[in-house]
Design a binder for these strands. Sequence first.
DNA 1: CGTGGCCTTGACAGGAGTCAAGTATGGTGG
DNA 2: CCACCATACTTGACTCCTGTCAAGGCCACG
Lengths: 239, 239
Amino acid sequence: MLSANPLLTQFQKTRSLSQAETAALSKVPLRRVALRPEEPMVRAGDHTTSCILVLDGMLATSKVDGAGRRQITAIHIAGDFPDLMSLHLDLADSDIRAVAKAEVASINHDHLRRLALDHPNLAAKLWRTVLVDAAISREWVLNLGQRESMTRMAHVLCEILLRMQVAGLANGNTCRMPLTQVNLSEVTGMSLVHVNRVLQQLRRKDLITLAKGQLDVLNWAGLVKVGDFSAEYLHIVKH
Amino acid sequence: MLSANPLLTQFQKTRSLSQAETAALSKVPLRRVALRPEEPMVRAGDHTTSCILVLDGMLATSKVDGAGRRQITAIHIAGDFPDLMSLHLDLADSDIRAVAKAEVASINHDHLRRLALDHPNLAAKLWRTVLVDAAISREWVLNLGQRESMTRMAHVLCEILLRMQVAGLANGNTCRMPLTQVNLSEVTGMSLVHVNRVLQQLRRKDLITLAKGQLDVLNWAGLVKVGDFSAEYLHIVKH
DNA sequence: CGTGGCCTTGACAGGAGTCAAGTATGGTGG
DNA sequence: CCACCATACTTGACTCCTGTCAAGGCCACG
């Protein structure tokens, strides 16, 4: 099938669809948008009328505090819907921007609402992704609040690799990882200098390789242990 | 009306309801549960078949890391639905327990699902609360990741007072605040000792009074400033 | 009146931030 | 093809915020 609707493709990944669902999904119009590195897709305060589906690359949701310090509150890879919340919340409370070059599909709210009303199973799947994102957010609160820096960093790397694997975007224990050390400092709440030192500790322990936008986990069990990582919070469904 | 259905009461707070909606809400059976301090209502790993509506007191959602350190990821006051996520996620990923004495209503999943399917406006309201909780969670990530300890603490206190006010549970700038300093350390990711020192700084600046389970914000503007607080993330609707 | 929970205080150590400088790396234009 | 520049990464020195340890005080309750 030539250039299938990526929305349809995404839904097919987790569940077999009825004829009606497939038809409805195919009919949803998408607007493809290419993003350059750092380019914002949504800004805090925006009133949006469409949702995003990530097609390629990586985006990050972030907030900035009064002193101008930025915190990344979520990262999004291909297949993620970073701002489904805009369906029910009037104003965006965070920025969403590309980490590196990325491509997204913009889906009109009205079309998504129609889809959700007509097809409860598709609505349920959408809501499930919102809830998983919320679960990830809670785990990040734990990560930032309680875990020491090396554990915190290892945990983040575990999550990234595992999510990439589940999305079919990893090659064994290797995946693209476009976050710079500055970005990682915005994820982990540590200073850039400390990020650098912690990464070197992880390298020295032969747990990871991380260079040129590529992450290679040399010792998954070891990284999981150092990172106090346990995947339940990702609510991954096996099939 | 004698002892109205608290679920109905909660929904009436934000929107006037249709006859059908009122009738449907009135018919939903609730099971009232009284909780003693620290008593868990949900545990991580549980498969639940009902949701919670907080009727009185305060609950907290928390996670524990591998070293046994507990992080509170959300606090819930009367009118909140702490675990709507259980409607679509099989297993709980966090504990939910009473902070002090509390009372909750337990609502069967099936009844809520029926309600949501039959009354899209009620479903939308429920989802909106889920999304606001997620927005709060993102703000907490920012708070934990970027803000220094005094700002962090002030921010938490601002959020608590404002939410209590919106819920009609405050008396001017005073409200019940059953979180102990240990609890506040679990919220802010700081040590108990440091919580104590930071609270004293806030008191010395004549910003707050906090004792015997009661918070009094003496200088709201001042606390907002110290706490880098801005309420947008709570998505409060005026009416 | 004793006991436990909660709060307070002091001393000390160390993890992590900041400042500052220097080293790759990769893209661009002359 | 090479010089140049921007971006990203690395390293060292120093400071200080915050955690830990330890002890003690204050209440409420049985």
